[in-house]
């Protein structure tokens, strides 16, 4: 463009006062700011709460580790913080947590996935309408109810098949915990599979696949990242679950990998101490912060793995 054409442009002259129809709207501006501020405050509250929890856990754990060496905490094979001969081997509680979670996941992941595949790929709309609310109700039952169900119904039933099963066991608690987690896994997995576009299914059907082949060979692989996320959520629920193990697994610390034995988990130990009459600030009381920090680190690791899996298996459709 030449210089001429710019000056010739009748629209390009110096601007006068801002016309009222284009002027800034002070009131709208102010309202937007206010709403933005409110939203920010709410987000800040949840972040601050989390930070507060981490702060307390870390601060109290530091005091704890001034009395107990970290090496002992990580390698000792006894957990007897309330005895005169006190030992603080967190492995004992981790073993209980791992075994009960493993039992629970051995139930929840296969059953949850199968339900999800059925609901997403096979069920008619009518069946889905009935089944989904039922699953949601299952997910809404308070865990204490599951705990007593394990103790009073499942354990006696299991004892008929396994006579040597004690009254409290990781097996019984884990199985019921698995049932409790099924709806979480199935609901998220189903969402992931239903998000797979129809064009992919049509492509598979057009190749002469059966319904089952479409579901297993195409839909499930396409939904990998969502399935992984649902499993990670299931694992987090299992590791953090408290009432079922506190009620049905017994609370005696026990370094074991046998689900047929009673044992304490990290969470059930925390309940035990928090409800007991240990003086605040005593070393026994401080153990719950160290145990809590351990739990936090485990779930944090799981979440990081989950994020990483999500990135790695990101859906490409």
């Amino acid at each position: 463009m030449t210089e001429n054409s710019v000056t010739d442009n009748s629209w390009g002259g110096p601007a006068g006062r801002v016309s009222p129809r284009l002027a800034k709207n002070a009131l709208r501006n102010w309202r937007e700011r206010l709403i933005e501020g409110l939203l920010f405050c709410m987000a800040a509250v949840s972040v601050l709460t989390t930070l507060g929890i981490v702060y307390v856990l870390v601060k109290e754990s530091i005091i704890f580790f001034q009395h107990v060496r970290i090496v002992d905490f990580l390698t000792d094979t006894r957990w007897t913080p309330l005895f005169d001969d006190a030992h603080y081997g967190i492995l004992v509680l981790i073993s209980g947590t791992l075994v009960s979670s493993a039992v629970a996941l051995a139930v929840a992941i296969p059953v949850g996935t199968i339900i999800a595949i059925y609901l997403s790929e096979f069920a008619t709309a009518r069946v889905r309408e009935v089944a989904k609310p039922i699953l949601e109700v299952l997910g809404g039952i308070p865990t204490i109810v599951f705990g007593y169900f394990a103790l009073m119904v499942v354990t006696p039933l299991l004892q008929r098949v396994l006579p040597e099963l004690p009254g409290f066991s990781l097996l019984s608690a884990g199985l019921v915990m698995g049932v409790m987690i099924v709806p979480y896994v199935s609901s998220l997995s189903e969402d992931a599979m239903r998000a797979v576009p129809m064009s992919l299914r049509e492509g598979a059907y057009a190749m002469g696949s059966t319904r089952l082949q479409v579901a297993l060979k195409v839909v499930v692989p396409a939904a990998t990242s969502g399935l992984a996320a649902s499993y990670i959520l299931g694992i987090s629920r299992a590791v953090g679950e408290t009432m079922i193990v506190a009620v049905a697994a017994g609370m005696q610390p026990n370094l074991t990998f046998n689900p047929m034995e009673p044992a304490a988990t990290i969470t059930s130990f925390i309940v035990q101490v928090a409800l007991g009459d240990l003086p605040h600030g005593s070393i026994g009381y401080l153990t719950i912060f160290a145990a809590g920090l351990t739990l936090l680190l485990i779930t944090l690791t799981l979440n990081v793995i989950g994020l990483w899996m999500r990135k790695k298996y990101r859906e490409h459709y």
């Binding site: 064009s199 049509e202 492509g203 057009a206 190749m207 195409v218 692989p221 859906e315 459709y317």
Partner: peptide, 28 residues
Amino acid sequence: RMRIGMVFQKPNPFPKSIFENVAYGLRV
């Protein structure tokens, strides 16, 4: 569908390797 193939408007490869995509129909 085993005897009549179809190619769609939008490419819809399966979430598999190149090899497995082509081998899919034979595996089925």
